[in-house]
Design a protein around this nucleic acid. Structure first.
Lengths: 194, 194
DNA sequence: AGCGTCGATGACAGTCACTGACATCGACAG
DNA sequence: CTGTCGATGTCAGTGACTGTCATCGACGCT
């Protein structure tokens, strides 16, 4: 495998998160990350496309999970209910990673470049979910709107899960947020949330 | 004012869009943009924070417009209806800039860094609109969800306005998208869009 | 044991985005 | 005519990222 120790990729990700937390993202150089991982800067860029990507290694797996949740929803499910199934699957991905997710999210919100990268990952997720809905026969623009609405639910639910001291389950918070979204978008309603 | 010709900022923005269209964003250096504008690279960075920002000069004004639309909505308006008023105001900003918006959007979608920047501008807009809703007395998470839902409508409506050859008004497309969103999120509905 | 292959890593030079420090120009006030 | 001041030019430097080539080390084959 590698030239020396195995798991070079994981070592780089671990070193990066540590350093970003210790001195901040901007004050950390790629050379420092590589050195802490026992590698060189050039090798870092062979594993990760850039300095930001090292924090988003799991985004591909998360996306696959969410998509499979949508695909696996009962055929009778309405678009937004299929999205809910996708969010449920995604919630499982984070379930046992709460502390890690908190640390990582604290680093991300502290830096604009990292926030940009997170947003494009969420946009990619949204596009993949819209694709899955289309695969279920949902037409445009319904598919895109349902996917974007689902992402809104995800963002709100996830943020609460990270922020709260309570021990509410991520999937619980997702369901609550979904219910609140449906309330907000309901027709002729008496101003919810006041 | 300036050392030579006036409107340095506008000249830089114009030169940048031209070059990004001619050779693509990545193949254009900041030095080339500055040279075409009759300035130096250093001066470019005095007007724009980075190579991406030059394409997003109007985002602040757009955001102010949208927020004022929400603030100015009738007090009796539900959160999502206030958002619709904000989108209506934002639509006016683009009304006479359709061709420019098309060219600019074509450049943005062709490059990942520019897409990231666009997403964070939209996120900033969403946050500002949520703030405006809170100013109207809307509680969290209703405000954030309504703002995000409104952004979903904006994205879908704007993309259609850019893509279609037809002469539909942006605000018309926004209203249609809003209606479709409400249909998707309606309870117990018979699978819209199929 | 000896040998060749091959993927992962190191070494090195180079480009370009971006920044700080300082000099300079040009308009304007007095 | 002169001092001020904002905008620009100049220059040196850092760090992210890339292309290229050499090298190492595991593995299979003989």
């Amino acid at each position: 495998m590698g030239r020396w120790e195995p798991n070079a990729r994981e070592r780089l990700a671990k070193a990066a998160l540590e350093l970003y937390r210790e001195r901040g993202y901007e004050q950390t150089t790629v050379a420092e990350i590589a050195k802490r991982a026992g590698l060189t800067e050039r090798t870092f860029f062979r594993h990760y496309a850039d300095k930001r990507e090292v924090l988003f290694d799991g985004s591909g797996a998360l996306q696959e999970l969410a998509v499979s949740g949508v695909v696996g929803a009962p055929e009778s499910a309405a678009p937004l209910d299929a999205m809910a199934a996708g969010l449920e699957a995604a919630s499982g991905w984070f379930a046992d990673r709460r502390e890690h997710a908190r640390q990582r999210q604290a680093v991300i919100v502290a830096n604009a470049e990292l926030r940009e990268r997170e947003l494009i990952k969420l946009a990619s997720l949204s596009a993949a979910l819209a694709d899955a809905l289309r695969g279920r026969g949902v037409a445009e623009p319904t598919a895109s709107l349902a996917a974007e609405a689902g992402m809104a639910v995800f963002k709100v639910g996830f943020q609460r899960w990270i922020a709260e001291a309570e021990e509410a389950t991520l999937s619980q918070l997702m369901r609550e947020s979904m219910a609140e979204l449906k309330a907000v978008t309901a027709h002729g309603q008496a101003r919810p949330g006041r």
